[in-house]
């Protein structure tokens, strides 16, 4: 990655680029310092941030709001898996513990990434809330009171968090149009959450749950307690086009609903996670 080449290319168009990024050496130092925390793959975001500074653009309130919202959800997931992995005897050793550890690490990476992104935009990341993973709003005796002692409960909550997370990021994407690297980063997290969801669902299937890696209709595979995380997934029509039996193809209702995941609004997501936040 030759950053100097990039700057030179910009210079051809904008001779004042070095004044905008002034002084160049300082900007580069900032950039490289930032780069230590943010690896190569997130370079678009880092570069975007540098250019935003250079061109005196500030992140829109919308973009900040999305990042703060995403950070709150990632805090929830990260602490959930961190506590799950730490709970002695909860997750069977071997493949299950390996998978949950992988997911835990991703969620912690998402937290760190979003915090860094917010700080690089000059924003203060929201603090981590206090969570009650029993969904008891602080009572710790909610419907999932045995979440860290019962493996099936743990996996059920994990599935709900992942499927809900996918819907949350999807719902926020339009607010990031025009944000360049921020939108791409959000999409790159979104698909990771979907990969997690698929794996957790297969883990549950292996333990007898009636679920597939994808969401069929608005089936939870868990029960009414998490229905709100699945409402709306039963859509058979996309952009006015009925998918079931489309163009004479043998597409069942189930397949039509599975083929498209549906977004949720921020308000819907906040209502879903509310019992988990003290």
């Amino acid at each position: 990655m030759n950053i100097l080449n990039i700057l030179e290319e910009i210079e051809k168009t904008d001779a004042e680029v070095y004044e905008r990024i002034s002084p160049r050496r300082k900007a580069m130092a900032e950039f490289y310092g930032f780069g230590k925390k943010v690896a190569l793959a997130s370079l678009p975001l880092a570069l975007g941030t540098m250019f935003k500074k250079a061109y005196a653009q500030t992140a829109s309130a919308d973009v900040e709001a999305v990042l703060q919202f995403a950070l709150t959800l990632e805090y929830l997931e990260a602490e959930f898996y961190t506590r799950g992995v730490a709970a002695a005897g909860l997750i069977p050793a071997g493949a299950p513990l390996g998978a949950i550890t992988t997911i835990r690490d991703h969620e912690n990476q998402h937290v760190a990434f979003l915090k860094t992104a917010l700080m690089s935009l000059g924003k203060t990341p929201v603090s981590k809330p206090t969570f009650d993973f029993s969904a008891g709003k602080g009572s710790n005796s909610g419907p999932f009171a045995n979440v860290f002692t019962n493996y099936d409960t743990f996996l059920a909550v994990a599935q709900t968090f992942e499927d809900t997370g996918v819907r949350a990021y999807k719902g926020q994407a339009p607010a990031l149009i025009g944000s360049g690297g921020v939108l791409t980063a959000a999409l790159n997290i979104h698909s990771v959450e979907a990969r997690h969801a698929a794996h957790i669902r297969q883990m549950r299937k292996a333990r007898g749950a009636n679920v597939k890696p994808w969401i069929t209709g608005m089936d939870t595979g868990i029960g009414a307690i998490v229905q709100k995380s699945y409402e709306g997934e039963e859509l058979e029509t996309q952009a006015g086009i009925k998918i079931t039996g489309i163009n004479g193809q043998a597409i069942s209702v189930n397949a039509a609903t599975e083929a498209f995941d549906e977004p949720l609004t921020k308000a819907q997501i906040l209502a879903i996670v509310d019992p988990f936040i003290v």
Partner: peptide, 11 residues
Amino acid sequence: GKIVSVEARHA
């Protein structure tokens, strides 16, 4: 977005 997460589930 509705499609990519399904592709990610497939993947």
